[in-house]
Design a protein around this nucleic acid. Sequence first.
RNA 1: GGCGCGGUGGCAGAGUGGUCAUGCAGCGGACUGCAACUCCGUUAACGCCGGUUCGAUUCCGACCCGCGCCUCCA
Length: 464
Amino acid sequence: MIRIYNTLSQKKEQFKPIEPGKVGLYVCGMTVYDYCHLGHARVLVAFDVITRYLRHSGFDVNYVRNITDIDDKILRRADENGEVYTCLTERMIAAMHEDEARLGVLSPNAEPRATAFISDMIAMIETLIAGGHAYAADNGDVYFLVSSFADYGKLSKKKLEDLLAGARVDVEQAKRSPADFALWKAAKPDEVFWPSPWGNGRPGWHIECSAMANHCLGDTFDIHGGGPDLLFPHHENEIAQSECATGHTFVNTWMHAGAIRVNKEKMSKSLGNFFTIREIMETYPAEVVRYFLVSSHYRSQVDYSEDNLIESGRSLTKLYNALRGVTPLASDAVARTAHDTLFVKRMDDDFNCAGAMATLHALAGEMNQQRRDGDEQAAAASATVLVRLGSVLGLLQQDPELFFQSDSGQGNELSAGQIETMIQSRADARKTRDFAGADQIRDELLARGVILDDSREGTSWRRG
RNA sequence: GGCGCGGUGGCAGAGUGGUCAUGCAGCGGACUGCAACUCCGUUAACGCCGGUUCGAUUCCGACCCGCGCCUCCA
């Protein structure tokens, strides 16, 4: 029985899908005008683990994650670059797919792009106007009439009067109320546009998700997720639009990931203190970045620091060390163990992957003992469970040697061949008990970032 | 100002009304030519003050501190 923290009710609830055995999941994806930063990675990885676990639990998950490929920031950036905006978005989408693949994030079932659903958005806006929930203003924009939706603020726990009292709400003359938000924006001269009943223009940000979610998952679906800063106004506005347009509850469970922080401040575009994941992956293996992200609860805020990534690297190394030289069996060859049970118990509790991770280390410790005792069969069985549980978190799926020996791609490292040659020289020196010579070679390798591990079977190496 | 979240050992990070997280680091030992890996042992924590209770880090209340949202941001 899975329990999920629902932002709407502000408590953990037993998860009950609308249709038994099936889950409709929508996550707000990227606005593609720049590379993914760590905050994007957090959301990507969090919902990847959630999807993997729901599937592991037997659910048929329909995971939809949109791409916002038209918006002010995209147009501005394309303009700065002096390129057609679609060139920019295509490039960023390709980069995003590359980053996701490296992080071990599985593709969603559907990845709708805003520009492919303009007609759905226009239809929804027409419905809203007909229902008295929206109005076309003199400037060619169409706005949502917030006062027409009694439940406005139910997600973010805001009261309309408080919002209006705040001085930070955009004061746009054409709006009837400052809290109203754009559904359709009139095109400025020389801007890309789509024709509509209200003139040439393009959709507002919030209506995209309402239209695409509705198209892909229907009027009401199970889970909607996203980053912490989307809660208000984006998700609140989605609810208003969708519920006014369909007359039905939009979403049963709302999930929000925690923020990434750097030096005690939120990592964000507006503060300019963000790290793209590709620059982080230049220094740290992608799986280490993933391990870092998975090792704290998806709802808690997490501090990015070099030290934390280094620690994650060591921790993951320990797991792979256990797996090294052991061949796991096919997953179904090993029955469910107490470790599986504990893992499931932890994950059932609002996807507590940090807690679940402890079982991976328990398993690794057990394996190391079994190998010490020479019980290779037991070790292989343990390895099977370790890899099985790892797969639910999207970890430990590569060959340990690959994890240990892949270079950073910076081009300034020793090749595997060079390393093997030096190891052979060292082995020769050790045979003649020339330990000074042997140690010199080992020190040289260490200086080049290569660590040697001796065992009865010979010497293996890893980059560290 | 409004709304919300959190304060756990040197660090990271789970969890629980009454012997246990886990990882990193440290310390002692084993293994090793020496290391590395690994194993065994070990140190150490629940912001502060009250309350409930036989017993509270865990429940309740006050307080202090930190953070997030209220504006485009995952």
